[in-house]
């Protein structure tokens, strides 16, 4: 009985936290649009953040994407050959990489790397009064710090995803070539043959939502972090968890919608 009550309270508390978190994000994004859309725009800072967020993630995303492409092929190859479908290996890997593995892995890695970085940075700026200092010198921190970062993640996650798709396909090619000997032109021919625009377009569109979510969550948690270094650590931690869950929920919703529209 006591356990039931305990579970109940824990559950209702985390439900409260969940709705509070959603409300916080919604209110924050309203502010971002309100402030961010008002000129003057901070183009230079957007470019700077694209560099910080995008270019500095290329190595990590590339290595992971390559390995996942390689492993995907090495693990599915025996089964597919068993069913006499060995020749479908390029098609299978291209569809699973472009539809799911590329976007999701890029978003999850960036939720960890970029999301925590943003919220730790904004959090420490908040607790050391740097955000206040910006405000008193006539710079709107929502515009300068937050809108620029969210725009940068929204633009860079799709670009990183395209890059991850390519690297991952190369990984898959290398994986196929360990046992078979496939010509690279032939391989990529099969890859692109298998891809329909209904595979490419929805999965490309969802990466913008992934990027927006990662930026929004990181900024909200950092900007609203509690005083003290402990608050900053907590904010970074929560923002990673929330961004990852958010990405997965969006992925699920997008898959549902595209299948309802008959694209799957």
């Amino acid at each position: 009985m006591a356990i039931v009550r305990k579970v109940k309270t824990v559950f209702s508390k985390s439900l409260d936290d969940f709705f509070y978190g959603i409300a916080e994000l919604a209110q924050f994004s309203v502010n971002v649009f309100k402030e961010g859309l008002r000129p003057p725009y901070e183009f230079k800072e957007v470019l700077n953040q694209c560099y910080e967020i995008g270019i500095k993630s290329f190595a990590l995303v590339g290595v992971t994407a390559f390995i996942l492409g390689l492993v995907l092929v090495m693990q599915s190859r025996p089964t597919m050959i068993q069913f006499g479908a060995g020749s479908y290996l390029p098609a299978m890997s291209s569809i699973s990489i472009v539809r799911e593995i590329g976007p999701l892995v890029t978003a999850l890695i960036c939720a960890g790397k970029v999301g925590s970085g943003i919220s730790a940075e904004l959090g420490s700026m908040k607790v050391t009064e740097q955000i206040d200092a910006m405000e008193v010198s006539g710079t709107n921190p929502f515009k300068y710090l937050v809108a620029t970062r969210i725009l940068a993640t929204t633009l860079m996650i799709p670009i990183l995803t395209i890059y991850a798709d390519f690297i991952s396909l190369i990984g898959a090619f290398v994986g196929s070539n360990i046992k078979d000997n496939i010509n690279i032109y032939f391989y990529f021919n099969r890859v692109f043959e298998a891809l329909h625009y209904t595979d490419v377009v929805p999965s490309f569109i969802k990466t913008f939502f992934f990027g927006f979510t990662i930026g929004l969550v990181g900024c909200t948690k950092g900007y609203n972090s509690k005083k003290g270094t402990e608050g900053v650590g907590k904010a970074a931690n929560i923002s990673v968890v929330m961004a990852m869950v958010g990405v997965i929920i969006i992925d699920m919703v997008v898959t549902q919608i595209t299948s309802m529209l008959g694209y799957l």
């Binding site: 420490s124 008193v136 010198s137 006539g138």
Partner: peptide, 24 residues
């Protein structure tokens, strides 16, 4: 409003207790 407040703030200097220098 925002703009007027920003203009007024330019006429005021604020020295923060923590100095609040931009780390980056």
């Amino acid at each position: 409003d925002h703009r007027k407040l920003d203009e007024l703030r330019m006429r005021i200097g604020f020295v923060f207790q923590s100095s609040a220098l931009y780390d980056s």
